[in-house]
């Protein structure tokens, strides 16, 4: 059973996935951040692989990505940093990023290396269903990695069911069609999430985009297994002085501890 599967078996509500950009704010802060996320109640770590042209991301994550790149972050460096992560990190870790850097690394080599260091799954927003089915999906599955598709309020039901059937670990419900870091009208989001809830999908659902604090986290948990927070945490890191203290305060705020 995969770490993600295990997690959702043990916890079916208020699962918190926190995104952070690898190599941000400092090249070598990656593991320290992961450790403090784990220590302060995050259930999943979504580690962003920085890219120069992140199409689905808003300004906050764009800025953190460029910052990480100028710190010297590369996939090579990232895998070196993660090579011993399983000595201290016990919660699921998923990598989020864009196809181009992975293709340059070599798609197969990337999947093999990710599995080796103990990564559990992948979120690749610009790897669409067609390409997944026709070429890349097999390599991902052969390496025992979970693949998490995004779905939006505009995704037609038949396609949504297909994306659910091809996903494993969880399904990433984008709260509305938008880039990351935008505020959302949660009354509309609720209608959408209720619809998802009633579909009896195979995978647990985590909601992302627009989740930023306790209020928004609580709101989506009514309908789903949990949520993903990204831009709000990166913002906190950008303002905070000490990574450990910032993470603790931020997660305490979201979880209401």
């Amino acid at each position: 059973m995969s770490r993600l599967e295990n997690l959702f078996k043990e916890q079916s509500k208020r699962v918190l996935n926190v995104y952070c950009t690898a190599g941000y704010p400092h090249l070598n802060s990656t593991l320290q951040i992961m450790e403090s996320l784990q220590a302060n109640g995050a259930n999943i770590i979504e580690l962003g692989m920085p890219y120069s042209d992140p199409l689905a991301d808003g300004e906050v994550i764009q800025t953190s990505s460029l910052h990480a790149l100028s710190n010297g972050m590369t996939l090579q460096v990232l895998f070196e940093q993660l090579s011993e992560m399983r000595k201290t990190i016990h919660i699921p870790v998923v990598l989020m990023g864009y196809m181009n850097p992975i293709l340059q690394f070599g798609f197969e080599a990337f999947c093999t290396r990710a599995k080796e260091v103990g990564v559990d799954g992948l979120i690749l927003p610009d790897l669409p269903l067609f390409e997944f089915e026709n070429s890349y999906g097999k390599t991902i599955k052969d390496n025992g990695l979970d693949f998490i598709f995004l779905v939006t309020p505009e995704t037609p039901e038949q396609r949504l069911r297909k994306l659910d059937s091809l996903s494993s670990g969880f399904l990433y419900a984008v709260s509305s069609s938008a880039t990351t870091g935008k505020d959302k009208d949660f009354s509309q989001v609720a209608v959408y999430l209720e619809r998802l809830q009633k579909m009896n999908l195979k995978n647990p659902i985590l909601v992302g985009f627009g989740i930023k604090d306790k209020q928004s986290f609580d709101a989506v948990n009514e309908f789903t297994q949990g949520a993903i927070i990204g831009s709000a945490y990166i913002n906190a890191l950008a303002k905070g002085e000490d990574v450990g203290e910032t993470t603790k305060q931020f997660l305490n705020g979201v979880l209401g501890n």
């Binding site: 890219y51 120069s52 042209d53 199409l55 790149l69 590369t74 996939l75 090579q76 864009y98 196809m99 181009n100 850097p101 992975i102 293709l103 340059q104 690394f105 610009d126």
Partner: peptide, 20 residues
């Protein structure tokens, strides 16, 4: 080299790490 930019696979000027 071969890569993906703005939604299509093509030839892209990029670093060996895939940054455009």
């Amino acid at each position: 080299t071969h890569g993906i930019l703005h939604g299509s696979k093509s030839i892209v000027m990029q670093t060996s790490d895939g940054q455009v």
